[in-house]
């Protein structure tokens, strides 16, 4: 996030405010990743963002409020990235669209480890007020995944709980790998995550066949 020029610059106040807010969100995400929640003070966030303490309080009432906003921004950028990848997948086939979204997710997490940690580790550790947002994010991924999914191999729709378990399971597994300091290796997990997700909807045999075919 670029710092704006000092003094007269002809930028609108709205633009300056939005830019400041975005810098604060990424300042908090970065500070949290490097220093942990306790050490991430308003002063430190301001320092990372190059925003004064008094300007911080023009945007947020507290560190917790800034945290919530940063958490939502992290989830939103993940969703955006996955949706874009899904929409521009090489084929219309459901499995290919799912594959494109998972690949985009893993690449984004590796590219932005602070965002990865925020979205999949720090969020649920922050307590009840963030939990609802984590849950809403996972639920929306469950709905996206369900869209266009074929009927279950046994016939009929795949039970709702299956989708929740698949999405929650992948999120928990990624969180564990991020905690273990393996964020840079996540893209290597692409084939097995894809196989795991497809298995719930297509059965193990078909999922294996699709993943092996590349």
């Amino acid at each position: 996030m670029q710092r704006l020029p000092r003094g007269r610059h002809g930028l609108s106040p709205e633009y300056v405010a939005r830019n400041q807010r975005e810098r604060l969100l990424s300042g908090l995400t970065q500070a949290l990743y490097e220093e942990g929640y306790e050490s991430t003070t308003v002063a430190l966030i301001g320092q990372r963002a190059a925003v004064s303490k008094s300007d911080f309080y023009k945007h947020f009432d507290s560190k917790d409020e800034c945290f919530l906003a940063a958490y939502e921004a992290a989830i939103e950028s993940i969703r955006e990235r996955m949706e874009t990848a899904c929409a521009s997948a090489t084929s219309e086939r459901w499995a290919d669209r799912v594959a494109a979204a998972i690949e985009a997710l893993l690449n984004l997490l590796t590219l932005e480890p602070a965002l990865a940690s925020m979205a999949l580790v720090e969020g649920i550790r922050a307590g009840r007020h963030v939990y609802g947002r984590y849950q809403a994010a996972l639920d929306s991924f469950v709905r996206d995944l369900r869209e266009g999914a074929p009927a279950s191999p046994a016939g009929g729709e795949v039970p709702e709980a299956m989708g929740e378990a698949v999405v929650g399971g992948v999120a928990a597994m990624l969180g564990r790998r991020i905690l273990a300091g393996e964020t840079d290796q996540l893209p290597q997990l692409f084939p097995e995550i894809l196989e795991f997700v497809l298995t719930a909807y297509l059965g193990a045999e078909e999922a294996r066949r699709i993943v092996s075919a590349g």
Binding site: Q135, E164, V166, V167, G168, G169, A171, A172, I193, F196
Partner: peptide, 22 residues
């Protein structure tokens, strides 16, 4: 089977149960 399968399975069961408990 993939190496991560059990982590995803335990995580998925945990997620369903956490929501129920909450």
């Amino acid at each position: 089977l993939p190496e991560t399968i059990e982590e995803s399975l335990v995580g998925g069961v945990g997620w369903i149960l956490q929501q129920l408990i909450r």
